Each structure stands twice: as C-alpha cells, then as structure tokens.
Computed example of a mutant assay.
Amino acid sequence: MTRARIFFTGVGGQGTLTATTLLARTALDAGLPVTSGEIHGMAQRGGVVESTLLVGGYKSAIIAPGEADVILGFELLETLRALPMLKRGGFVVGNSEALQPVGVCLGRECYPPLEAVLETAKGFAAQVVLVPCISLAEQAGTAKAANTVLLGAAAACGALPFSVADLTRSIEKYLKPKLVDVNLKALALGAEAAKAGQAA
C-alpha cells in the first residue's frame, strides 16, 4: 500500500485547501485510505494556511515535526517555516516566487532571498524542487491556478503517490467545467518545469 504524509503550507487566497481536497479525492479514487486535516484553515487573504493529508491508512490527521514525507509550499517564506516538519530524506516542492507579507511591504521586516531558502531546504530534504508557480499559472491563463502548477511539479518529480495522469483525471472530474482547461494547462506547465530542470 502506498503511504505518504503530506504537509501543505501557504497563505490565504492561494488555493492550499483546494489542492488538499483535490489530492484527497485522487487518493480515494485510487482506492487508498486517506485522512486530512486543517491546522490553520480558511485564513483571511494573506494569513497562514496549513493542512495535512495522510495517505495509506494513518488514523490521525496530525503530522508532528520531523514526520512529513513531503512539504508542498505554496509560498516561499511559509515553505522555509515548515521545514522542521519534514523527515530527513523527504521531499520539498515549493513556489519559488514570494508573496511578501505586510511587514516586508512596509519595510519593517526582511524577506529571505530565494538562495537562502533553497540552501536551508537542502539541509532538510533529499530533493528540493522550487518552480515559479505564479508566473507559470499566468501563462496558463490565471494566477489562481498556481496551486495546480505546484501539484503538477510535485507529481512529475515523484514526490506524490499519484501521477500527472491521475491528477489530470481528478481535475476533469472534480473542478467546475469552466476551470478545467486552465488548470490542465497549469498542471502540465508545472510538470514540465520540474522535469526540465527549470526548478531553482
């Protein structure tokens, strides 16, 4: 049986919970038992959103520090903050583009450079894949599909117990018809970025 503990982190408005639900449905369609939970859910736009997805028969939706097989980071700083959740040798797949918090925009705080986040992540993970999710989503047709770009990258690099084809079926089955085409494009662009080594 395929087993995986996946920790999602991002900020409000990025579709973190939508991505969690889509993966949960993909697992159920594959006949895999799944447990999911929100840690800080439904945050206001810009607030932290964290969720968990445990595939393969876990009884609790809780992931303790050092237990996650995969971190899916929808925002660069939140990916950095979530690294202690990862087990040694796990996967980090994240958005390389920042959504700067208010404190940074006002000049009160500093945002870490991409290179520093990447180096820190490499100290925790066996594999780190960072892709420009927002830019690729805009290429697909809307920045709102950045979450699907990230899922495509994660599936393509082997971080998920599902293939890009599995996610394609889920998008076609579960998303509103008007959202299917743009999300399929976003999924493909994310997968191509991960495979082509465009990841940071």
Results as ranks from 00 to 15, higher is better:
174 Y>K: 06
46 G>F: 00
94 G>D: 02
120 T>V: 15
83 L>T: 04
163 S>H: 11
163 S>F: 11
172 E>V: 06
37 G>S: 15
90 G>T: 08
42 M>F: 12
66 G>V: 02
70 V>F: 01
19 A>P: 10
59 K>P: 14
93 V>P: 08
37 G>K: 04
186 A>T: 10
165 A>G: 09
36 S>L: 08
73 G>S: 11
173 K>P: 00
52 T>N: 01
145 A>N: 08
147 N>Q: 08
22 L>F: 08
169 R>S: 13
159 A>C: 12
126 A>V: 01
195 K>E: 15
56 G>V: 04
149 V>R: 04
157 C>K: 07
41 G>C: 03
114 L>V: 08
157 C>A: 07
130 L>V: 09
50 E>K: 09
120 T>Q: 13
40 H>D: 06
35 T>A: 14
200 A>G: 14
185 K>V: 07
196 A>I: 06
172 E>F: 03
163 S>G: 13
157 C>H: 06
59 K>G: 02
21 T>L: 14
67 E>S: 01
134 I>F: 14
67 E>I: 00
40 H>G: 03
152 G>S: 05
197 G>D: 14
137 A>W: 11
140 A>Y: 05
40 H>S: 11
22 L>V: 13
101 P>S: 12
156 A>N: 08
167 L>V: 12
153 A>L: 03
179 L>I: 00
188 A>G: 04
114 L>D: 04
71 I>N: 01
13 G>L: 09
103 G>V: 15
128 V>R: 02
197 G>A: 10
133 C>G: 13
79 T>H: 05
28 L>E: 10
51 S>R: 00
51 S>T: 14
18 T>L: 15
184 L>Q: 05
193 A>W: 11
4 A>Y: 02
168 T>P: 02
4 A>S: 15
30 A>Q: 09
69 D>F: 00
131 V>N: 06
132 P>N: 13
2 T>E: 12
179 L>E: 09
115 E>S: 11
155 A>D: 10
149 V>T: 04
141 G>E: 07
70 V>K: 02
6 I>K: 00
84 P>K: 07
124 F>A: 05
16 T>W: 02
30 A>I: 03
9 T>P: 10
192 E>N: 14
17 L>M: 15
87 K>L: 05
135 S>T: 15
16 T>M: 07
39 I>P: 00
13 G>W: 10
41 G>K: 03
151 L>K: 02
171 I>Y: 04
115 E>G: 02
192 E>M: 12
188 A>L: 13
62 I>M: 12
166 D>W: 13
99 L>R: 09
183 N>P: 04
3 R>I: 01
58 Y>C: 01
137 A>T: 12
158 G>W: 12
182 V>H: 00
91 F>A: 04
65 P>T: 01
